[in-house]
Amino acid sequence: MSDSVLLPVIISLITCCVIMSFVWLWAKKVKNAGIVDIFWSFNFPVIAVIVYFFSDGFQTRKIILSAMVLIWGVRLGTHLGKRVLSHLHEEEGRYAQLRKDWAPIADKKFFWFFQAQAFSNVLLAAPFFIVTQNKVQELSIFEYIGFSIWIFAIIGEATADWQLDLFKEDPDNKGKVCETGLWYYSRHPNYFFEWLIWVSYFVFSLGSPYGLISVTSPAIILYLLFNVTGIPATEQQSLRSKGALYSAYQKSTSAFFPWFKKKNQIPQKI
């Protein structure tokens, strides 16, 4: 691996680890590990800026890729920030459960958990490092397709988040399960479109040498969503808070893909 590739990788890793160290100090002070989600998202725009300035690929390609990551990461981080900061002194259920499981050394374990998040930022950013090293001064069909998938995915993710926020803003819906809009078809349309965004980065990177390597990014995201911090933790918390209502919702909807519905019903409108 050339020094031109290693430099942005090393700078990104050091920067993300430092950021997460400060985030851990804040989380320890307010006793809310949920803020890690905000900065996990914001770390990707930070990496986008780093690869833009420290990679020597084709300028137009760097601008497009960096803009894609900046727009997506800032939108997601801002969305999560509004949610977490609205109840900063009330830790989200899945992190509160981890705190209980990891007692009496929860703070120490959370530190390494936060550092693991920083490492995952850099690992998942493989497409960014690959694309911004490509010096070919012409965009390929893969880059046009990847960008098109990204447009579709970010609109879908923003729509799912907006629909859920709209549902939660109605006090009459307290304790209820959101089954409106995309949430009628899928229990996690936001996760689906989040994964699709990573697919778009992978497809975009296929126009660059070694782009196939970045298939690891959507693969890792898919694994995490289905087996680690995504769907399992979210659904366990929903079952704890909503009980039978959410259990019935689980039986009627697809866990992930938003165009499948297990029951033949007419979608509700929002």
Rank of each mutant, 00 (worst) to 15 (best):
S55R: 08
H188E: 00
N121D: 12
I14P: 01
L98F: 14
G243F: 03
L85F: 15
A27P: 00
Q236P: 01
S4L: 13
Q117V: 12
V136K: 13
S41P: 02
V203T: 09
V18E: 06
I154K: 05
V84L: 02
A48I: 07
K109T: 02
F54L: 11
S12Q: 02
L124G: 07
Y191L: 10
S66H: 04
T229Y: 08
G146T: 05
S208M: 05
P127Y: 04
S140H: 09
F192N: 04
T229N: 14
D37W: 04
C178A: 04
L124A: 05
F119K: 08
F152D: 06
L239S: 02
F192L: 01
L139A: 10
M1L: 13
N173R: 07
T253M: 04
I266V: 14
S86L: 07
S21F: 15
R99P: 01
P171V: 12
F44N: 09
P232K: 09
V5I: 15
V49I: 15
M1Q: 11
E92T: 04
E157M: 03
K29S: 11
C178T: 00
Q250F: 03
W102Q: 03
H89M: 13
T180M: 12
I105R: 13
Q268P: 07
I71H: 05
I151R: 07
F42T: 07
Q268A: 14
P8K: 02
I105V: 13
N121E: 06
K29N: 12
S12H: 06
L222F: 09
I151D: 08
H188R: 06
F22M: 10
K100H: 11
E143K: 07
L222K: 09
S120E: 09
A126K: 02
D107L: 02
E90G: 08
Y201H: 08
S21I: 13
Q236T: 12
P45C: 08
V228G: 07
D101E: 14
R83W: 01
K31A: 07
I64M: 06
I47S: 01
S148D: 05
K109Y: 03
R75V: 09
I270P: 10
A248F: 00
A67F: 12
I220A: 06
F142D: 12
K269V: 15
S120W: 11
S200T: 09
Y52V: 07
G146P: 02
Q133E: 15
G156W: 00
R75C: 05
R83F: 00
V215L: 14
V203H: 03
L124Y: 00
P171E: 14
A158Y: 11
S238V: 05
L13D: 02
A106G: 06
S214Q: 01
L65D: 05
I231W: 00
V84F: 01
T216Q: 14
A67D: 13
V30P: 01
F128P: 06
P45W: 02
V131E: 06
F42K: 08
S55N: 12
W24M: 07
K263G: 03
V9I: 15
S2K: 11
S186L: 00
